[in-house]
Design a binder for these strands. Sequence first.
DNA 1: ACATTAACGATGA
DNA 2: TCATCGTTAATGT
Length: 231
Amino acid sequence: MTVPGSNLRDFLESSPWRTSLTPEQMERVRADTTMRTFDAGATVCLRGSPALHWMGVVDGMLKVDTIAADGRSTTFAGVPAGAWFGEGAALKGEPRPYAVVAIRDSTVAFMPRQTFLWLIDESRGFSRWVIDQLNARLGHYVALIESFRLQDVTARVAYCVSELFNPQLYPSTDRQLVISQEEIGRLSGLARQNANRALHKLEEAGLLRIRYGVIEVLDLEGLQRFAQGHG
DNA sequence: ACATTAACGATGA
DNA sequence: TCATCGTTAATGT
């Protein structure tokens, strides 16, 4: 185990937007950014809380979700290690519309909103990276709607799993996803039992391997093809 | 049809 | 011991 705090610098250094910044800009980012750990199940951001930070997942996995009045919940996004997220609320300066919850023990980096906005003002490269990020999210949700309307359940699960490896949004996701089938279901809009069946079909197709609390992706391109539709 | 909830036992950490 | 998994049965749209 690493000492808390010791790897924040490395995490920032390996973040995908890092190459857009000057050494001086990077220095401010290092000075302003903090890190916190969360137990599995802990809330990282309450729904409705002010968006004071832009966040990066140093380790673990988060989800963005909402809970309806009747108690049922749905997940809008899984956020694996290596991802930066929350730019929507940080840009608007509005309360967070959704809750952020750790689905396993996680470490999260917090960049103050003012620093994030300052980078957008000061760095064309960073601004461009943020535009690409927002565009990738838009593309993801359009594809998700397409999948819901045109594809069967198994293809949808294939899409939702493969999107955790989206090169812009989630550039460094580990092939071994430490995630329960319950969470795969929530991510795919399915009951756990159906997520289980879909995952077994994908395993039979040789695209992934099911282990206890772990989905090991064996063939990412195959998963993406499967998500586009199959015989 | 096909998805959902409920329920059960089995199994892994 | 608790979380997770695999499965089946009843139920709902």
